[in-house]
Structures are given as C-alpha cells and as structure tokens.
C-alpha cells in the first residue's frame, strides 16, 4: 500500500469519482453495522429475542466488512503499476515511475 498512486491512464476526475465510490461503500457498511448494533442493544433492553438472533446478527457484520475489504483490496492493488509488472506491449506505463 506504500506505493499507492493513481494509475497513469486514469484522468484525475475519474480517479476522484472512484475514490468517492469506494468511500461510499465503507459508509454503507458502517451504516449497516450501526443499525445492527442498535437493534441488538434494543433487543437486550427488551429481553425478548431468542439468543440465536444475536449470534446471527453478530455474524453478519464481519461479512459486510469482508466484502468492503475485498473491494478496497482489489482497488488499491489495481492502482499499482510497478515497472517489473509491465507487459512489453503497454509501454505507456513507464510514466508511473516518474510519479
């Protein structure tokens, strides 16, 4: 992640939109987590939900994080264009080294 910089072929405004969309996914996941935690707190206060509901809800939250994590991981890694990775045909990526 230390070498993270934008891929040379992507114009800056498109890159900004991409970053915005990735952040939106994290906002979504954070929202879902906050909602489920709120429901769990409400259930504990009211004392009338079967315990299984808690377990299921608690399992859902990591799944959302994994999904957001996978997307972010792919995005970050797709931005990397190190010289040793380049195919000989696509010579324009040499511009990355200068960035």
């Amino acid at each position: 992640m230390l070498n993270f910089h934008r891929d040379a072929g992507t114009p800056p405004y498109i890159f900004a939109m991409q970053i915005l969309s990735i952040s939106f996914i994290w906002v979504f996941v954070a929202g879902i987590t906050w909602w489920i935690v709120r429901l769990i707190v409400l259930s504990v206060n009211l004392h009338d939900a079967p315990d299984l509901s808690f377990i299921i809800s608690i399992v859902i939250i990591p799944i959302f994080f994994i999904l957001a994590g996978v997307l972010t991981y792919v995005f970050m890694n797709l931005q990397r264009n190190r010289p040793e990775d380049i195919d000989n045909k696509e010579g324009e990526n040499e511009a990355d080294e200068k960035m």
Partner: peptide, 20 residues
C-alpha cells in the same frame, strides 16, 4: 474508465483479482 479501476492486465493485477 471509471469502472475499470485502472486494470492493465499485469500479472500482479491478475493475481489480485484471482485472490479476491
């Protein structure tokens, strides 16, 4: 351009996609 996320077909990127 927006949706392709800078894909260039490099082996590193292919491995990333594979893992994901």
């Amino acid at each position: 351009s927006f949706l392709s996320w800078g894909w260039r077909g490099t082996p590193h990127q292919k491995k990333t996609l594979d893992r994901a």
